[in-house]
Nucleic acid binder design. Structure first.
Lengths: 165, 165
DNA sequence: AGAATACGTCAGCCTTGTTGACATTCCAAG
DNA sequence: CTTGGAATGTCAACAAGGCTGACGTATTCT
């Protein structure tokens, strides 16, 4: 193991620093989900519905399979969520034009409205954090998070990020 | 609101940037929990057990109430987790010396061993991400996460961080 | 024609969260 | 010394949201 600090200090890689990073992730994620959770409680929906709505809004017309691989859950689990959203008229499922086995998912006006409410709340917190930390901290934040993702997730993340749409 | 971009660009606060931050959090958190989850599956334990073990290890002798407020769950929920860990001999619960109503929680040797296995896996990923991103990115990462926490969680985070122990 | 794909659904299970109710033990204030 | 309240444990019941396995249907590909 020749990881000798070559002049450049590697103090940021001590177990102590890593542990702090881990705990920061844990506590911050709680804040990250707190506001949407608050809005959803009492609305008969949960975090799973939020995630579905978020990614359908982000990629209108996406297929069930694509959503499945982004969310990383089973189709049975997603289906339960999707069914209630469709029944309640927040999501519309259209038979695919080219491949009729597929279903293309869209938010209805009501769905888009809930999405806005949720993402406004979540963005407000993110905005406050970004503003408090400043642009270069934000760049670092993103770099570390990207490096922490699994390969599959990074592909999805980049595909969404690099969109011209 | 006099938050006019004073020469300094505020492009990092656009809705698009914020959305990317949100999605980065979502995808990265999956990676963050993936390795411990893999280790725990088949061991009859889950993420809740991991969290309890982590914070007991971090603060040996902590009380149930303190753990409750760190984890942000109900005592019934924590109790279920704690009971199985105590039964399996991973955690020891000692009656408080000063206040005998309290229970002081400690990891046994077996508990400490599982803790090490889990945190090694989680630290490996964090280390790889930190190393790939570099020290200044790591500083930014931490700054943003801290700013994202709820006030209560930030207090817990800082109390753990600023420990001399 | 037959295999593979995309989707939906039924049934049942697990973990982890919740509320509500209640018992015990013990500290501290009156 | 008694009593109120705090800290803890525990029972029961329930819900959300994961999971597996099996099966059915429509569609498309080979």
């Amino acid at each position: 193991m020749n990881d000798v600090p070559s002049g450049q200090s590697l103090l940021f890689l001590t177990d102590e620093q890593l542990r702090q990073g881990i705990e920061a992730m844990f506590f911050a994620y709680r804040g990250f989900t707190a506001d949407p959770d608050r809005i959803l409680e009492g609305k008969a929906y949960g975090r799973a519905h939020h995630r579905a709505i978020h990614f359908i809004n982000r990629s209108p017309g996406t297929t069930v399979n694509n959503l499945l691989s982004i969310l990383g859950v089973t189709k049975q689990s997603l289906n339960r969520v999707l069914r209630s959203l469709i029944e309640d008229g927040l999501v519309e499922s259209r038979v695919g034009k080219i491949d009729k086995r597929e279903r293309n998912l869209f938010l209805t006006e009501a769905g888009a409205s809930l999405e806005r409410e949720l993402s406004d709340a979540q963005r407000d917190r993110m905005r406050a954090a970004f503003r408090a930390a400043g642009p270069s901290a934000v760049a670092g934040f993103r770099q570390v998070l990207e490096a922490m993702m699994d390969e599959d997730m990074r592909r999805h993340y980049e595909a969404l990020r690099d969109r011209t749409t």
